[in-house]
Amino acid sequence: MLEVIQVGAVTVTRLYGCTRRDQYELRAPRPFPSQLRDRLEVGRASRGGPDLYVIDEPGAFQLTVAPKSARALMMPRLTTPLESQRDTALSLAGIVDELLLEAPR
């Protein structure tokens, strides 16, 4: 584990992947809202069902999401700089946090 960052209600943990890529785990205190997939799918490929889906942005990242477990893992592409990998993870966490705030408890 390299770093823990809080983005609102979302905890982002940066994990060592290899010299060119870290992995980012996103966790929240309650299940991710169902609207999350719709939001993430804009301009990106996705596959899987409602309990487990994968969002893929070529040249950027793959995000595997277990919404009911309130957990996701981002694996950035190796070609992306480490700093932009971090920015992308925080941006995704921001989207999750925003939707959590909007969603009824």
């Binding site: 994990l15 992995q23 596959r47 899987g48 069902g49 487990l52 994968v54 893929d56 070529p58 040249g59 793959q62 595997t64 893992l73 694996m75 592409r77 190796l78 070609t79």
Partner: peptide, 20 residues
């Protein structure tokens, strides 16, 4: 069926990231 359905295949880098 769920694991097989994940459709493991190389991305545009020719790599298969899965299970971390």
């Amino acid at each position: 069926e769920a694991v097989s359905g994940l459709g493991f295949a190389g991305n545009e880098e020719g790599l298969i990231p899965a299970f971390g």
